[in-house]
Design a protein around this nucleic acid. Sequence first.
DNA 1: CGTATTAATGCAATCGATTGCATTAACGGT
DNA 2: ACCGTTAATGCAATCGATTGCATTAATACG
Lengths: 346, 346
Amino acid sequence: MNKRATLKDIARETGVHVSTVSRALDPKRDTPLSEDVVVRVRDAAERLGYRPNRIASSLRTRKTMTIGVVIPDITNPIFPPIVRGIESVMEPRGYASIIVNTDSQRGRDKRLIEILLDRGVDGIIHTAVLLEDPTIVKVARSGLPVITLNRKIEGTGIPYLINDEEDGIRKVFSLLYNHGHRRIAHLAGPLELSTGQLRLDAFRKAATDMGLDSGALAIAEAEQFDEQGGREATAKILAQDPHTTAILCANDRLALGAIDHCAAVGLACPDDISVTGFNDMPFLDMIPPRLTTVRIQQFEAGAAAAGLLVKMLSGQGGDVPGETILPVQLMERDSVSAPRADGIRS
Amino acid sequence: MNKRATLKDIARETGVHVSTVSRALDPKRDTPLSEDVVVRVRDAAERLGYRPNRIASSLRTRKTMTIGVVIPDITNPIFPPIVRGIESVMEPRGYASIIVNTDSQRGRDKRLIEILLDRGVDGIIHTAVLLEDPTIVKVARSGLPVITLNRKIEGTGIPYLINDEEDGIRKVFSLLYNHGHRRIAHLAGPLELSTGQLRLDAFRKAATDMGLDSGALAIAEAEQFDEQGGREATAKILAQDPHTTAILCANDRLALGAIDHCAAVGLACPDDISVTGFNDMPFLDMIPPRLTTVRIQQFEAGAAAAGLLVKMLSGQGGDVPGETILPVQLMERDSVSAPRADGIRS
DNA sequence: CGTATTAATGCAATCGATTGCATTAACGGT
DNA sequence: ACCGTTAATGCAATCGATTGCATTAATACG
């Protein structure tokens, strides 16, 4: 109904000029003002229920106090905690976030970033997923503060924050190895996605480090990071090497699919075959057999990335490390055991 | 680096006035313009990579093409699909969304809505949770388009969209009844939250409709909508009536907690006691015993609510029904069976 | 051919807050 | 008492797009 009060209203009310009102209300003002005026202005502002018009302010200052958050899909359970982590840092500092979902589609990425830029976001946190993201690189080059999460884009100077996935893969690999597994297969995610590629590389590296010939191990790429993708790729793995005793999966959902397919062909987990996941998504520990997996600090990663962005936004870009790596944690549960001694499996 | 092109740049480039440029670029312009100018302007715009400054536009037109979405908590798995549903409608129409999480806390509600208003959102979709939400009512009264989702606030004229929860509760209640259960308990959610209250009311109604004395049935209120809340409340229920044969829970997580507590005291589900959930959250069907529950159309609800909001935003508020109810679906799985005939339980 | 229309475009105010510069008043120093 | 400071505030431009009104040019009409 009755529109919001503006500086002009307060000016009229107090008899001073709008610029004076503006200064009186500015918490970190540099110009000296008489105590009297400040009090009167604050008073009037209070009385009229004044709230600054951020749009007008943004137009003038070129700051919207809004950031963009680019994620693949909020319905993927690993992202909500990340988002909350980001907001736990941004909101207290007066920033709002606009979240966009790319669904890992090339075209959308560009379109959505444009939406963010149109709205004048002050910075972007990008949980990059595609191996190539030319759009975000261009944006960062143009001077907008950008942080990538879960993904480094080489040679661009964009600060990135990642979980120590390489270490995570190494941990599960070692666990399987120490249980006696040697024919360890990798169920990779879509290699077009950075997560898929990264974890595959880490798998190969871990295998080599343990003295196995990574070329001899069965590897199959899932088309999607979901149960169906896991089922299909598992079939391929078992075809490649029927004597596989363990499948190291690129994420939890793939692992669930793997277990499902194995069960369908008569292989029980972990008795006949061991399976591991990655991410430790919510409720995972309630689904049998409780999956041995790697826990990633989603919330903390979001919060840390936001912390970096805040620094960049406040002009302390120099203080931002180019690389931040968060530790991961092995979660040993029930989906891993020693390979069958009898070697019954055909 | 090189800042964005503005109307002024295009004007200089083409030799016409900025206002003419503005009109030439306006898809639904009313003023007649010569084809020649339009072409030249479009050309120049293209060439300069012109993108309108939405901030400036917003200041003048008082439309930000941004909406606010208020939810309790995005990490609660029922909300991501709702959010995606909303965006599936809003984004193609040029709207961005700012999502805020209230954590069901009174104070935050107000503060967050203020954040949205400060940013000049054109409308709000509010998945109200508290029984009383004076803030959002006031906002709606001030003329801003508001839709509430999952909750009606009586007598305010705010259009609301709800799932037919009453019908859902009735369906599970009937199912239990038809299996032979008579001592059916209700594990309610926090009654401060509308969902908790609503489902309790529906439970009582269903009981009465089936000819049971709802006053005689065990009812316990959980402090939180989570597993721990479910466990604690289940203890209370079993204390109230040790002969309870079925627990109808206000949501899935409470049900998981209930089953957990029952198992801890030696009651197997469904053999010793039947348990039902509500919501059918993601991955629920992978957690044993697969919970019989009520599926709510989260995505569709979000999309439908957004559809209503869009109508209001485009000035067709008159066409928006005050009430929209989406059907729910009973998902029969494994957590319900007939009560033990032997009545062994102490 | 003069005037009334209409088409095409320019002008300038506006949205509300911010900020460099100008102005005024008060004060201190010598 | 005079001048240089500094304190306190006003002035006006600015951010970029939009839009009612004015203006000019072109066309139609009688």
